Amino acid sequence: MSTPRVYVIHENPEWFPPFAEAFAAEGVPVEEILLTEGQIDLAAEPAPGVYWSRMSASSHTRGHEHSKDYARALLGWLERAGRQVVGGSHVLELEVSKVAQHGLLAAAGFDVPRTSAVFGTTTLKQAAATFTSGQDVPFITKHNQGGKGLGVRRFDSLAEFDAYVDSPEFEAPVDGITLLQEYLTAREPFITRAEFVGGEFVYAVRVDTSAGSFELCPADACEVPQVIAGAVCEVPGTDAAPGAADTFTVRTEVTAEHPLVQQLRGFLAEQRIQIAGVEFMETTDGRTVVYDINTNTNYNPAVEASAPVSGRRSIARHLGGLLDAEYAAAPAAHV
């Protein structure tokens, strides 16, 4: 039987090297499961170890449109066999549905953006008119299965939106569900992403949005370089562009004792989510709005270099601890 190790399930090899370095630094044996193809012998037992699923909601944008379904099959097999899975089936379903995230956050008492989910495109223009009460007021769209800011656009009038829906530029959601959401204006030009590992707060990241006019520029919209309604977002988890060093910084005044952080910690524990980045915005009208849960969180290198604790190494340490507890691995096995 193979030596127990941490198995990391994902579909994007470009993001893994910094995590591989973190696992090596913590002395935790790790192996990738690249879920772009492969197979499962359903009569076999999974290899011993702890499995961390980091399946991305945006996998279809990299030509891996079936990876989400491969993950569903793999995670179910692992869970039925009794393997410990971090980010298991229930977390995957949350990751790929902003509707599910919104519902859970609202039910837990968080202030969330007013949102309408529209199925298909036939009624999309009428739904927008209903959402705005027929008024030309700003609103945004996003895709239910998001990541990378998919479908995130600002519209200032219904005519502008109608023209977009009818144009070749219309970006159809992969699952057919478009979200209409109220436009929020930040009190200051940034949003905050609170990172949690093993259910514990790691640090909060201040994401500067002053480079553009789109006030609700979420961190998932900043995972790739792109322009969204005039806002240029940099790439967390990769080298920042020249002059963008201050786009992502540690927000030191947000600590583990912060009331919202404590509320989020309890929420994640209740939902059995061990690793996540949760995004919120403090608005001009005094609200603190929570709007996104990222269960395949990335870490910005500038933040990692300046933060008192590393998010990547916290993950490696946490999963290594689970591995030791599960298999009573001797330190010598961590080489």
Rank of each mutant, 00 (worst) to 15 (best):
S2C: 11
I9C: 03
P13R: 12
F16P: 01
A22H: 05
A22M: 09
A25Y: 07
E26W: 07
G27A: 11
V28C: 07
V28G: 08
P29L: 00
I33Q: 01
D41W: 08
D41L: 09
L42Y: 14
E45M: 12
S53L: 02
G63D: 11
H64S: 07
Y70D: 00
L74P: 05
E79T: 10
E79C: 05
V86A: 06
V86I: 13
G87T: 06
G88E: 00
S89N: 02
L92N: 00
L94N: 12
V96H: 03
V99E: 04
A100N: 11
L104S: 03
A106F: 12
A108D: 07
R114N: 13
F119V: 02
Q126T: 07
A127L: 02
A128R: 01
A129F: 10
T130D: 12
F131K: 04
G134H: 01
N144W: 08
G149T: 10
L150A: 09
G151E: 07
A159Q: 14
A159D: 15
E160Q: 14
A163S: 15
V165E: 12
E169A: 15
A172L: 11
D175G: 13
G176S: 07
T178V: 15
L180I: 02
Y183Q: 03
L184I: 06
R187F: 12
A194P: 02
G198L: 04
T209V: 08
L216P: 03
C217E: 01
P218T: 14
D220C: 12
A221I: 05
C222R: 05
C222A: 15
V224H: 14
V232H: 13
E234P: 01
P236T: 00
A241W: 05
V250C: 06
R251L: 14
T252A: 08
E253D: 15
T255F: 03
A256C: 05
E257P: 03
V261R: 03
Q262N: 04
L264E: 08
R265C: 05
R272T: 10
I273V: 15
A276K: 04
G277T: 10
F280D: 03
T284D: 14
D285C: 13
R287H: 14
Y291P: 01
N294I: 05
N294F: 06
N300H: 03
S310E: 03
G311D: 04
G311Y: 05
R312T: 07
I315Q: 10
A316I: 04
L319A: 10
G320V: 06
G321W: 05
D324G: 13
E326L: 08
E326V: 00
V335Q: 09
